[in-house]
Write a protein that binds this DNA or RNA. Structure first.
Lengths: 223, 223
DNA sequence: CCATGAATTGACGAGCCTGTTAAATTTAAC
DNA sequence: GTTAAATTTAACAGGCTCGTCAATTCATGG
């Protein structure tokens, strides 16, 4: 059943095995197209035909591969989460002093959301569905442990060397970072419309990025 | 035309006036039911029949009143924004010292989002639609000025009496408050599923509320 | 009491979208 | 070259949802 492992599912090529046409490449392209479509229109709003059109294939083919709309959606979800986890894994913070490490984490997260609007919107969509699909995927739980662990290690180091105060909850800090970073992209439109300020303006975004890191650092620092 | 003003459209009940059928009461009930439905399933996902069922009327009647799905949605949007603005208006901060005033604003916002999940989810939905509907409503722009103004006054007072540092942008502060408060309800499900921590747990929520106020106050305070 | 116009309903038609099925087309192995 | 599995296509059937329209209630003013 492993949907994510499909990428490396090159079938060990048993003797009695017949034919690869372009299934692997197709699957990848479908997931990518589906990501855009789901992110743009939500689960119900997304159209299988639209996804098919974006990949120059047909709806029937997608169903042949994945089994149905819901399963395509799940594949996309696992794909994007795997992607961000992988990116986080390359952060390499161990040799940085705590404050610099936090700074890097916050800015990485902020930038990643900004550059991967599809991911963010997908998370929003999934929440609108009350996490119904996510709960079905066991892969998710192990998939997101690392970020918390690294964050916890940095905070512990900071407490140790006196740059941070004690009693900080890493999960809550991660939440604050995610909240500030996500809001910047998820609520762009209503905010811009209401306050007549283009939230996407270059300078503003850079300033906001700095503000978010400052907010987090001030929260962690000694009184 | 005025969709929102319909609430107070009680026809002055002249002596020779008997009750019509139930148009006013119906309209109110429809908006309420539509709020729930749109919040629960998004714009596309919401069903006019479902709304009708919740109000014991029919789809045709709703169209007779509002004109169509999109217009019902718009009426709901204006309704909830008017509601939160009104609640904010009752905050009465002028006589509080700056720090206490900020504390009240933050906690009010946090609590309001928590108690009005429908409102929050509607904002999310509208953002998923890239603010398409909001932009059509001129009412929105004037509707949300007050909160920024009051916040700006409190910050100015704080800068004046030395409790806050200078150079703070009220809009960005409001954004941070909104981000932290909203995330707490919008991302409940994915966060709970991924980190196996029930974000809704009583104690956690109260602690988080305190954390959010602390985050904001630390950001505003002198270095 | 009746005429009038607003409020309300039931039924209809059209559009979109999804999943399936059977047929056609490739491809690798033999 | 044949063959059989793996892909791909085209067409179908069923379901859901939306907006509209003509018909029907009902309170009210004359």
């Amino acid at each position: 059943m492993s949907l994510i492992s499909s990428a490396e599912a090159q079938p060990a090529r048993g003797a009695a095995m017949r034919k690869p046409k372009a299934p692997v490449a197709n699957r990848a392209r479908i997931v990518k197209a589906a990501l855009d479509e789901f992110a743009a229109r939500g689960f119900k709003g997304a159209s299988m035909d639209a996804i098919a059109a974006r990949t120059h294939t047909t709806r029937a083919l997608i169903n042949y591969y994945f089994g149905g709309k819901e399963q395509v959606y799940l594949a996309v979800l696992e794909h994007v989460y795997a992607e961000i986890r992988e990116a986080e894994g390359r952060l390499d913070l161990e040799h940085l002093p705590p404050v610099a490490a936090i700074r890097r984490i916050v800015q990485f997260t902020f930038d990643y959301y900004l550059a991967h609007e599809g991911f963010v919107r997908l998370v929003v969509t999934e929440n609108q569905a009350k996490g119904r699909h996510l709960k079905k995927s066991r892969a998710m739980r192990t998939l997101n442990r690392p970020i918390i662990d690294t964050l916890a290690r940095v905070i512990a180091r900071g407490e140790g060397d006196g740059s941070f105060r004690p009693g900080i909850d890493p999960v809550e800090v991660h939440m604050a970072i995610a909240a500030l970073g996500m809001f910047n992209v998820t609520n762009q439109h209503t905010f811009s419309a209401i306050f007549q300020r283009d939230m996407g303006a270059r300078g503003d975004v850079r300033r906001r990025r700095e503000m978010v890191t400052e907010i987090i650092l001030r929260y962690l620092s000694k009184p």
